[in-house]
Amino acid sequence: MNSAAVAIKSIKLNRSRPDLDDVRCEAKTPSLLSYPNILKAHCSFTVDRCLWVVMSFMAAGSLQSIIYHSHPNGLMEPYITVVLRDTLNALSYLHCQHLHRDIKVGNILIYTNGQVKLADFGVSASIYESTTTTTTSSSSSLKFTNVVGTPYWMAPEVIHSHTGYSFEADIWSFGITALELAHGRPPLSHLPPSKFMMLKITKRFPFSDDFDDKENMITQLKNAQRH
């Protein structure tokens, strides 16, 4: 039998969540996904009032902890390019079946060899399960209406959820993640979440030009995508 280091995510259910369907989703989704840039769950089982989800151990931890401890002002652009490429690859695969709905550096994990994996499907949604969608007939008219995610990374249409949102919401969060990688924090994170959400609903606000060489970075990303 092979021995391998694993990570166990323990979800305390009597405190954290009222709805066990969310938990079922968190356990089930990663076990049904098979892609190099997505963290796979090996199995899950219950221990007392906790759900233990057994996953591959990502020894280098999350990008959030790497940035916090070693790069508080953000990563260098070549590294950002690699992270964004792999995250986009993961999203491209994921969007055939799911919305992630919580893209941020805290949910991007790094293996010791530098491999990037997207994790945490606690609030993800299947685009084919009729219980989660308002339209089930086609993927073009698909809309979700429940407000989920983390405020600083949320797309405006997720907060304005009565209008519905779709795959673009993940792309917005991906853009915020790019800024977070460059700065070490998401835009407007100095504001409390409630004030931030009000601002997002009521006003337009500018994002600064963060990348020194946007053209070059986009070219690198495109090339990386091809290989």
Binding site: L20, D21, R24, A27, K28, S31, S44, F45, T46
Partner: peptide
């Protein structure tokens, strides 16, 4: 069943 994914799917 001990496997939570399968047990919770059976519940569904």
């Amino acid at each position: 069943l001990p496997n939570f994914e399968i047990a919770s799917d059976a519940v569904a």
